[in-house]
Design a protein around this nucleic acid. Sequence first.
RNA 1: GCCGCGGUGGCGGAAUUGGCAGACGCGCAGGACUUAAAAUCCUGUGGCCGUUAGGCCGUGCGGGUUCGACUCCCGCCCGCGGCACCA
Length: 928
Amino acid sequence: MSNRDGGYKPAEFEKKWQKRWQEEDVYKTPTKVDPKQKFYCLDMFPYPSGAGLHVGHVEGYTATDIYSRYMRMRGFQVLHPMGWDAFGLPAENYAVKTGIHPKTTTEAAIKTFTSQINSLGLSYDWDREIGTHRPDYYKWTQWFFLLLYKKGLAYKKTAPVNWCPSCQTVLANEQVVDGKCERCDAEVSQKDMDQWFLKITAYADRLLKDLDKIDWPESTKEGQRNWIGRSEGAIIKFEIFNLKFENSKEGNYIEVFTTRPDTVFGATYLVLAPEHPLVDKITTNEYKQEVKKYQEQTKKKTALQRSALEKDKTGVFTGSYAVNPVNGKKIPIWIADYVMMTYGTGAIMAVPAHDQRDLEFALKYGLEVAEVVVPKAAKYIVIEKSLEGDVEKLLAKYGQVRITKEEDDWGKFFEVSVAYEKEEEFIEFLKANLLEESDDGGSWYADSAGTTNKVVFRGKVFNILNKAGFKAFKDYGRQAGIPEDQLAIEPKAYTADGVNVNSDFLNGLETPKAKEAIIKWLEEKGLGKRQVTYKLRDWLISRQRYWGAPIPIIYCTNCGSKDKPAIVPVPEKDLPVKLPDDVDFKPTGESPLKYSKTFHDVACPVCGAKGEGVVWRESDTMDTFVDSSWYFFRFTDPKNDKEFASKQAIKTWMPVDLYVGGAEHTVLHLLYSRFFTKVLKDEGYIDFDEPFMKLRHQGLILAEDGRKMSKRWGNVINPDDEVKRFGADTVRMYEMFMGPLKDAKPWSTAGERGVYRFLRKVWVLQDKVADQKPSEEEERIINKLIAYAGKGIETLSMNTVIARFMEFANYYTKQKEVPLSVWRRFLVIMAPFAPHITEELWSRVGGEFSIHQQPWPEYDANMVKDEQVEMAVAFNGKTRGIITMPADASEEMVLEMVKQTPKFDKYLKGKVQKIIFVKNKIINILVE
RNA sequence: GCCGCGGUGGCGGAAUUGGCAGACGCGCAGGACUUAAAAUCCUGUGGCCGUUAGGCCGUGCGGGUUCGACUCCCGCCCGCGGCACCA
């Protein structure tokens, strides 16, 4: 670093201690575990990429390292393991380019990661290391697949799937971001393929409900809730007019899903997704051609085109009609791609008055708009000059009156909130009493100001129209102080709750009640039923790639038939189904395994048949998220070759007490892991149903220029370089000092140097250590620090703990001597943060190896309390000075002290009205 | 559009239940050491006024509650993240 480094040369001792910690198994997981004293502290295991460890990894790993060390010192038995999420595309893509086997590159990357992790002094128990690409691991991944298969939770079906043309594989819905491949950004297309799925939808409700019982960041829970997307509503059957299907079992009706069954009287047409199976049957000859054309167009559209960017609604009429079950009206049936086959029933009843999308569609194609819900109270604006007499008083009869604008040319502007049941009466009153009335809106103005019936259509769009049939004009609106956007010309559907109108037996009911009433009615008549629907879909796990765990399935034409080979699960005793080596990595759209001779050379486990084209293995591999959905169980018993983990080991360690990792796994990994855990619970393997009790995310570390770190910008900070420059302790502590764990924050080499300076300051302090009794003040200082550090670690506020360490060092830099007992305690509590320097300094004052096996020091609660406190003295709420008082001084004592302090004299001249006194904090004296 | 999170000095960020806003670090300025620079150490550092004492302003904006508001309430603005034709 420099020639005057105060003798602090981390390079001289960090390696030495790292070696000794490993040799003496300092971080070995205890075998005797008291269930009340266990602590499972987990990091999200990394994908061992060729780029090596990133500073972002270091941040999360250091936080859990500090926590683990602290818990060990507190006497807990800690499980703090590390492993590798080693299957995945990058290694395979590299193999395609270079021909080097993914296993070779992966193992090399693991070596690099391991040595980098060790160079940071992280306290993992390497005896428990796992790698998802190793047969002794993926044997159990395959076992999980078979478990799911046996329970009917893994199934194969032909379905439209997301296909990434660049990765040459299918993707899970979760891996498609904005219609593009999450990994390579290529546009994803739809393709029909025969694929394996896991039935995560069977757990949708529990995955949603159980979020309430775990301590996770709200944003993450919300992300999962969103993804699961539960909505309550109803399925309603619409009979198809004048059409009977030949096969009567299918019935002659269309089922739609809606969250607003209360608006069924406003349903003026139906829309089916273009892929809906009934489309062909209901399309009349006249419209066949057009419908076909539209279906083909839809198919060609990518997910991207069909969603976000394609805002303009399109569709075609099928020529058929349905009957609205509540009012018998004949309504047209359309197809349109704004309705998705994958959600609900793939068909909707369109209620244009109360759904924005339906409204846009209806307006475009001239379909009827029927209003059936109105706001409980509509807001009308009336100008003073338009009525005779005391206008405010007159209006007050019809609802709450508010003045929106004082005087202007028109007089005052009144806003009246008129309850729906008084509206007619109100309009009659206006008609009868308005002084003027003209076509352009006359002298009064009626509108909704945001909450109401801004939209009334009869196939025609008006600017804004009110109930009475008077046009409202923007100018008046502006004068009335109505925000510009509420005067918008674009028609807006009224989608909020309100009160039913034009709805026969639902009239007058408020939305929640109307929903209940209509569902009851539908169920009684057999025309529909209550229904809960989820956005969550089954998890597609087949991947047409090599570097993953093979799906343990064999196809046998002997057990089945040539056309329909039987699906035979590989018997458990034959696991693992190993990845063969005789493969060509070139992606072809089919798994490279397909062409491996050795791989397919297998006899049917059921009938024993053999031979090419007779019996063969499933050649797809599993999504790597399957590997990571259960790895936290494996850590509890990583070498078990009889079970994925023994019941005993799981009982001992699970669930995970603290889990730290990036927020990018909000839906994928975290949701899948919860799913697997729940399946295990149901199958009796475990007795809990949430894997991660407490979850925290580390924020993104940005480059010094405030941008994301990227090779492209050349602004990447490599942890290795930093360790070389400043030592591991500096890097660890700096990353903790940057700010709150969860926040995104930019790197600062200058800031890092500040932490280095602090450590050097600590190093230099060793020369002042003297075997003497600490003063009471010194006892207070160290006791407070112990208390603060413990609490700070528990809340993961490492940055503030380090600030206190700095204050400690600053204090003793100014003192002549550091009492040995204070010094020793200081080293122990700083050891979790800076394991190397503390171990070195510890050994230099005769501490026994290792400092990391010392107990966390006790503190005396009395010592943590100050005996002298500084109190603020305020007059009329303004702080005017500080006085030092003994702790817990009474109001009288404090007041006396204030009176005796000359500088407060000038504030005490007036008569004292009142005194507010807060013990140890403030005295606020109110004077005249 | 919807949901979630956030907005405090030149910068990263502190601030139990409402009770001294700006801890700690960076940067900057001045000083010590040095032939000099670097490194190190010391002092100062929210803004404005004032020689000092001290005063006024100040936690995105506008209101409110309170003796007292970064903190609580109402109404906005801006930024970040997620979701998004989900019926």
